[in-house]
Every structure is written in C-alpha cells, then in structure tokens.
Design a protein around this nucleic acid. Structure first.
Length: 264
DNA sequence: ATGGCAGTACTATACTGA
C-alpha cells in the first residue's frame, strides 16, 4: 500500500501536474491533496475519473480545501471535526475546510491541512493552536474505534531544527516556534510517529520551498509535510520518500509529494 | 530588516500563504 500527500496550491491550476504524477506513479493507492482552493461544485473530478480514480473532496472558495484521490473506493468518509466529534464548542474551527478522513481496508487515513498561522501572536496563530488542540480530541475519538491510523498532510510546523534549512531565529518564525511544536507534539503523543525518520536521520530533506528568492534552486526548504503512523502501521512501513521531481517543473506547487509504502 | 512569488477573486489590488 502506498499513500502520498501533496499540497498542490490549487488543484485546477495544477491538474496536469497531478495527473501526470499519478500516471508516473501508478502504484500509489491514495493521493491526499491539500489547498485545492475550489468549491466542491467546481472540483475537476473528470481528469481523475478518466484515469480510473475515485475522488473524495471537501472544498471551499479560494482557500484551503482537501481531497483524496484513490485507486479503489474509500469508506466512511468524514468531513471536518464535527463529523467525528459531534457538536464542537468552537464551530469556527470547521469554517475552513481542512480535514477529511476515510478508511482503506482497515486503515484509517486522515488528510489534513493545518492552518499556517500567518504571524506569531496574530489571531490566525491563535486559530492554528486551537485547531491543533481540537485535532487531538478528534484523533483520540478515531483511535478509540480503530488503532490503525495514518495521518498525513501539510502540518505547517517543522517538528525539528533538522527540518529547516536554516533554523537560526526560528523561535520567532511561524511554523517553527516552541508553542507550535509543543502543541503538535501533544497530538502526536497519542501514538503517532514520523515515518520519514524511520528511514532517514539526516538533514537537507525538505517538502516545501519558498517561491521567492530561488528557494528551491538553493535548497532553502522546510520539511512540513508528513506522514505520522500508529505502531502497527509504523512497523509495517518499508519506505518513505520525498519526490522532488514535481517541484522542478514550470509553474510548480511550492510543495512536493511525500509517499509512504506499507506492507499489506 | 525587507521583500521577494504565486493563486484567487476580480478586473486593481487585497488577501492569503509559508
């Protein structure tokens, strides 16, 4: 089983890149997309259906939006926090469409686009931390039903200094502050491990490079796209790869796909 | 220290991202 995650920064603008990538990677079972940036009624289902995939979407106008593109049908699709938790005390956390989960066989796959947070101490930053706190409750509820959970997506947090090309001054930078790391760590403490680090302990591995200032050509990137797996899945994983090829194309997304391989 | 690049909505420029 291969699961991939890719923040495509508009699925409509990137449709050819995504379809070409699927055709070049036919053994990927599920591709989790973030930042689709399209309302559901305008989602480009056809190109995926024509390639033989099933599509599961949760979008909104202009911003955010997630989707799952799957070789075989997925089951028990749930959109947003409330679909799992029931009524939530802060409904604004479901205003932005960032969270979709579904089952592939016995594996619960959660695809998420964590809020960026804009600037430290901004209202958006507070929203990000509240979102991550509710994510913990959400995952706890999923784990109560099924121990085999894979969460992936754009987490907008570099979990270690090794995941940033230059961590100097990171304390005051969004995506790298202690409070973001601690809040995400509290989520992962439920039993999730970074599968990339099962296979690679070194630095200079990134999944996002700023469009500006030649970030990619100078490899000035961040690793903010992850797959976190619970124990049984973690043990069965045999590889985790970052595919930088799509980032080299013209008009690329600023993120590139990350793929985990799990023995079935 | 700042700005740089890109997509969307809209139709000039603001907002957002990371």
């Amino acid at each position: 089983m291969k699961i991939a995650t890719w923040n495509v920064n508009s699925v409509r603008t990137r449709i050819n890149h995504v379809c070409n990538w699927l055709q070049a990677n036919p053994d990927v079972d599920v591709l989790c997309l973030q930042e689709t940036k399209v309302v559901d009624s305008d989602f480009p289902h056809e190109p995926f259906i024509n390639l033989g995939y099933h599509t599961y979407i949760y979008g909104q106008k202009s911003y955010n939006g997630v989707a799952m593109i799957s070789r075989s049908p997925l089951f028990d699709i749930q959109l947003g926090f409330a679909s799992v938790l029931g009524e939530i005390s802060d409904p604004s956390l479901d205003d932005q469409k960032r969270l979709i989960t579904a089952k592939l066989g016995n594996t619960q796959i959660v695809n998420m686009y964590v809020p960026n947070g804009s600037e430290v101490d901004s209202e958006k930053f507070a929203y990000k931390l509240r979102w991550l706190k509710l994510l913990r409750e959400y995952l706890q509820a999923l784990l109560a039903k099924n121990p085999d959970v894979l969460i992936c997506g754009d987490f907008n947090v570099a979990i270690a200094d090794l995941d940033i090309y230059d961590p100097k001054g990171r304390e005051s930078k969004v995506m790298a502050t202690d409070i973001e790391r601690e809040t995400l760590a509290a989520v992962l403490e439920l039993g999730f491990k970074d599968i990339f680090r099962k296979f690679e302990s070194g630095g200079e591995f990134f999944s996002w490079w700023d469009y500006r200032s030649g970030g990619f050509s100078r490899n000035r990137g961040w690793r903010i796209d992850y797959h976190f797996l619970t124990d049984t899945l973690y043990e069965k994983a045999t590889a985790c790869a970052i595919d930088i090829e799509p980032r080299k194309l013209t008009q690329p997304s600023d993120h590139t796909p990350v793929i985990v391989t799990i023995e079935s």
